[in-house]
Nucleic acid binder design. Structure first.
Lengths: 155, 155
DNA sequence: CGCTTATCTGGAACGAGTCAAGTAAACGTC
DNA sequence: GACGTTTACTTGACTCGTTCCAGATAAGCG
C-alpha cells in the first residue's frame, strides 16, 4: 500500500476507490479530522472528478454511499476547505467548485463555452505576486484565471 | 445634493453632475443606445463610486432620480456591459461589481478584510496572456486578482 | 463504554439574479 | 410640435445556490 503522505493526487488508483479511500482516510486523520463515510466520499469524488460543484459532489457521493443529506455535503466541503484539504474556487458565472489539489498556488483555465476547468501550473515566478504598485496592500495571493475556448469547443 | 426647484429631476440639475451627465449621455449615444434617466444615472453612479455592486448602484441612482425599479438597474447594468460601456467583475465571495473603466485589461487588488477593490495596471506584458501550457485552449483573457490587506486594515 | 462530534430529517430563509406581461418613455418622422 | 413604433421600465412572482436552524440520532475515537 503506497502511503502517500503529501496529498498528491495519485494517478494509478487500481481497484477503483480502494486505494484512494485509504488515502483519503489518512489525509483526514492527518488533518485531525474524524474519518466518516461522507468525508471520505467527498474526497474520493473530487479526486475522481476535480473542479466539481457541491451538487455534482453530492450526486457522486450518493451514487457510492447511498443517501447523504445535502447539508452533510455542504458541511463536509466547508470543514475540509477549512482544514486545508480542499480548495474552493468561485469562477465568475458559476457555482463554487472544489479541488483536492492544495498547497501549491496553481491557476485555472476555463472554457467560456462548455465551462470545463483545467489546472495550470504557476508559470515560473515573476507574474505570481507582483503588481506594478501595491498601494500599500499586504498581498498574500495572486489568483489568475485564463479564459478562452477549449480544444473541443473551438471548431 | 442639487435639488431641483420643481420636484422633477429635469434638465435643471446643473451642478457637479452636469458634465458627467452630458458625458454619459454622449457615451450612450455613441454606443447606439437610447439615453434614459436610469442609464445615465447608473453611469454617473459608477463614475462616482467604482466597483459598486447592483444594490449600491441602485441606491445611488435612486438618491438622485427618485424611484427606479431593481429590475431596471439590472437591465441597465446588463445592457451597458453588453455594449461595452461597463465591465463586470465577480470577485469570489461577493456579488457582481461594475466599473466604467473599460477597454484596457487592468486587474484588481482586493482587501480580504474590508473588501475594498483597487485597480491595478497590467504590469508590463509578460504575465498577461501566457500560461506554461495552453492545453490547446484558445485564450482571450487573463484575469488576475490580488488578495491581501489594504493599508487601513493592516494595523 | 461513554463522551464528543458528525450527520440526519426537514424546514425555513437568504441574497442575487431572472422571467413574464403590461405600461411608459425615447426618438425618428411627419 | 404631435404621432407611432420601438425600446425601456415597472411590478411581482419565481429560480438557484447556499446557509441556518433546531432537535434527534448515529458514529468515531480515547
Amino acid at each position: 500500500m503506497p502511503t502517500d503522505e503529501e496529498g498528491r493526487p495519485r494517478p494509478a488508483a487500481r481497484r477503483q476507490g480502494e486505494t484512494s479511500r485509504d488515502d483519503a482516510a489518512s489525509r483526514l486523520r492527518a488533518a485531525g479530522l474524524r474519518v466518516t463515510a461522507p468525508r471520505v466520499g467527498v474526497l474520493v469524488a473530487l479526486e475522481c472528478e476535480s473542479h466539481a460543484d457541491a451538487d455534482t459532489v453530492a450526486r457522486h457521493v450518493r451514487s457510492s454511499l447511498g443517501a447523504v443529506s445535502t447539508q452533510a455535503v455542504y458541511d463536509v466541503l466547508h470543514a475540509l476547505t477549512e482544514a486545508g484539504l480542499l480548495r474552493r474556487i468561485e469562477p465568475a458565472g458559476s457555482a463554487a467548485r472544489y479541488e483536492t489539489r492544495v498547497g501549491d498556488n496553481h491557476h485555472h483555465m476555463i472554457c467560456r463555452s462548455c465551462g470545463v476547468i483545467v489546472d495550470v501550473d504557476c508559470s515560473g515566478e515573476a507574474p505570481c505576486l507582483a503588481p506594478a504598485h501595491t498601494h500599500g496592500f499586504a498581498l498574500d495571493e495572486a489568483e489568475v484565471t485564463f479564459w478562452g475556448l477549449c480544444p473541443d469547443c473551438r471548431q
